[in-house]
């Protein structure tokens, strides 16, 4: 019983020693001169930093480094950077340097090396990029570390130039925009002008009658009055045919009508004018 207890204690001690952790994790901004940020220890319980880091036009490089003891050397050390909820993540490899008992790992996150797709979606959806650290050894799944110590917000001035790859799917709808119908004047204005013209016509007839130039002396009193009447009626008839043409009769019907009216009216009209005497 006691042996079992001792063995249990030893086992838990050993397994705790097997738990991977990184020490002295910190972020440095070599190019932009900003102060570095210390994160400290990274293990399975690491929580996220309060404020996200920012990539903007002035930030050059972000260096993320930490150290791991040589005896705990993990076989898989990687930094996942991306949007895990979208399943869009890129794996970054560290630069490894050995300093005796400690192994230093450094990840360089640079705006130019981060894939444009990540920057584009982070900017478009206004989500920060999640950085997750993987420290893993085989056959050690309980003690491997997958932690997200910090997030990076993308805050660039201009939109990221990224052309989304073509995918099959519904495309945006297009409805044709028609040329606008030509605008017409208001009906009241047109009516006003029609009344103006009607008044002018009325005024014309009045002017004719009041000018003193009208006398009906030339109306022939003999048989020629019939010719006169026919002459007037034929020109009224022609105007009627023309107005009927305007209203929609086909041109061929109109031409036939003109022909039928023209034969008698030309003959009788010339007869009328010839017999009109010298008074014209």
């Amino acid at each position: 019983m006691r042996l079992a207890g001792v063995l249990f204690a030893v086992c838990t001690l050993v397994s705790n020693c097997l738990a991977l952790q990184a020490r002295d994790a910190h972020l440095a901004f070599p190019n932009s001169g900003k102060r570095g940020i210390m994160i400290g220890k990274i293990d399975s319980n690491t929580q996220e930093m309060q404020k996200p880091l920012v990539i903007d036009n002035s930030t050059g490089e972000i260096d993320f480094s930490f150290a791991i003891e040589a005896r705990d050397r993990p076989s898989q050390v990687a930094l996942l950077l991306g949007l895990p909820e979208r399943d869009l993540e890129v794996v970054m490899e560290p630069k490894v340097t050995e300093h005796g008992e400690l192994i230093m790992y450094k990840f360089k996150i640079d705006q130019s090396t981060v894939p444009k797709a990540l920057l584009y979606f982070a900017q478009a959806e206004e989500q920060p990029l999640t950085a997750s650290v993987i420290l893993a050894k085989p056959e050690n799944h309980k003690n491997n570390v997958l932690a997200s110590p910090f997030k990076i917000r993308v805050d660039l001035d201009e939109a990221v130039e990224y052309r989304r790859p073509a995918r099959y799917g519904a495309k945006p709808e297009i409805i044709h925009e028609f040329n606008p119908e030509p605008k017409t004047a208001p009906w009241k204005l047109v009516q006003f002008f029609i009344i103006l013209i009607a008044l002018a016509t009325f005024g014309l007839v009045i002017a004719w009658m009041s000018s003193g130039a009208l006398n009906f002396n030339s109306v022939p009193t003999n048989f020629n009055v019939v010719y006169l009447l026919f002459f007037i009626l034929s020109i009224i008839g022609f105007e009627y045919i023309f107005v009927r043409y305007y209203a929609g009769t086909s041109i061929f019907d109109t031409l036939f009508a003109v022909l039928y009216l023209a034969i008698p009216s030309l003959w009788l009209g010339t007869k009328f004018l010839r017999n009109f005497g010298e008074t014209i």
Partner: peptide, 10 residues
């Protein structure tokens, strides 16, 4: 009117 009117007033 033209056809009915004479040249000078009678």
């Amino acid at each position: 009117f033209f056809v009915s009117t004479s040249k000078v007033n009678r």
